[in-house]
Design a protein around this nucleic acid. Structure first.
Lengths: 266, 266
DNA sequence: TGAATAGTGTCTGTGAGACAATATTAT
DNA sequence: ATAATATTGTCTCACAGACACTATTCA
């Protein structure tokens, strides 16, 4: 039985692609001058202008070229489609359902990218848009709502905890009509990965400008994790990763805050 | 620039494959009847009987067939090559260097599998062998030594911490002459992943028989993590994941120990 | 009896949860 | 003066590290 023939290569039309989950946290300016800007956790989607899934929203992505590895392709996509350079990028998961693309077999490796939206400066193309993410999760499902100024997208993902057979959860798309391909799966996988990584790595700082207040940083944690944190506990947790500067942020109708920057402890 | 042409599919011979890191912990029977069996952390490799890399050791793997997703292929490999069913399996990483296979482009997704070697019962094929793993790690390199009864394999991996551009580390093969393909990279990635997962999941129990003593369980942790743990701390840490039974293990020249089993807290 | 492992007690330090208190600004 | 956020103080509790102690078996 140990046939190492390569049936697949001979009989199948096959491509590989890279798709990127670009996450960021955006400010929503408040009318009350005293209040802090409200933050939203958001993902960049692009409106497809051709078949398949024409007019649906999808992750930025492209086929991998002959002389690229997949990570190179991901960087190229970031550069050419979204005009982003030197961005945090990590491999997330490879999706390989044989029928995930109706044209032919396309195996897609999803990457996770993080940016500080302040540096993005509205350079995204016209067919791209940031969507604010809201998720509600219960025992067996995840309900995701994505919002931009014009549109609301909802989908529902089922979780099953397959005993000894896969990663923590196996996700299934239960409801979805506005997102292309199996990208809802990639989106929830990416959100889940990012939440976990917040707790045991320093990835957040890829989403922060050089100087930031601890209040802002805490807001970013809160909006990604989807829960409030206690101020003193947060400050203690973050203290070793962060460095006080002599700059202050003034102008809100309240006590000014010290600006901090990231302190790398490697 | 946003050409979504599929150059790759048209001009390139491409296959996808699944390779599996099967990890386990084995007993080495001690001559002194009083002593506990020594445990080794081990990985299953297969000797290649054909080109490329003929006579080198590689991970069990195969090309993915037309109607399989990659995880199905991984399960098929476990069944047909190593006669293993219902095994813990999780996707690890997708390797896609265009020249990682000299024949043609082969994108390989590595999976991590865990087994309790007691249940394996020596059913592995003759061209497969368990190798004990020893690793030494410093700031910029990982030195790996693999041993079976006849052979010692050494390779060396470089670690670079690419600022904002990839997962924690980018690995490079610095020295290797007995392992096929880029499988040394998969091996160190898998070891690293498993070490991390020990600390925040219950994966260990996939490497344990149904009933085990806390001493054995601690040995498994120690041999994978490569360090000694303190008994009381270990017992406190594991207490909630484990359930006392009324069975005892006797026969060593010392106090008998209670047999425990896994307690799932979901 | 003694080698070897099994298992417990307890002191200490660290760090998180919870809540309260104080500080500082622009209008 | 007041709303709003910034920042610190402190009590308590949970838990890990460290080390010492007791328990039990079988050649």
């Amino acid at each position: 039985m140990k046939s190492k023939t390569n049936d697949s290569a001979k009989t199948e039309k096959l491509s590989i692609s890279a798709d990127i989950l670009i996450f960021s946290v955006s400010d929503e300016i408040q009318s009350n001058y005293r209040k802090l800007n409200k933050k939203h956790f958001s993902v960049l989607l692009m409106k497809r202008d051709k078949s398949p899934f024409k007019d649906k929203w999808s992750l930025p992505g492209d086929f991998v070229k002959v002389d690229e590895d997949i990570e190179d392709a991901a960087k190229r996509i970031l550069t050419s489609e979204v005009n982003l350079h030197d961005i945090y990028l990590e491999q997330l998961y490879t999706f390989s359902n044989p029928h995930r693309d109706p044209r032919m077999r396309v195996v897609s490796t999803a990457y996770l990218a993080l940016i500080d939206k302040n540096t993005l400066n509205e350079q995204i193309p016209t067919n791209a848009s940031w969507f604010n993410i809201m998720t509600i999760e219960d025992k067996e499902s995840i309900y995701v709502t994505l919002n931009n100024d014009n549109e609301e997208i909802k989908f529902k993902i089922g979780k099953t905890l397959k005993e000894k057979t896969t990663d923590r959860y196996k996700y299934t798309i239960l409801e979805n009509d506005k997102i292309a391909f199996d990208h809802p799966l990639a989106i929830v996988s990416g959100i889940s990965r990012l939440k976990n990584k917040l707790e045991y790595t320093d990835v957040v700082f890829n989403m922060m400008p050089e100087y930031f207040t601890l209040g802002e940083l805490q807001q970013v944690y809160e909006v990604i994790l989807g829960k409030k944190l206690l101020d003193p506990a947060f400050r203690r947790m973050i203290a070793s990763k962060v460095e006080k500067t002599d700059k202050m942020q003034t102008g809100g109708g309240h006590r000014p805050s010290v600006l901090f920057k990231y302190k790398n402890n490697d």
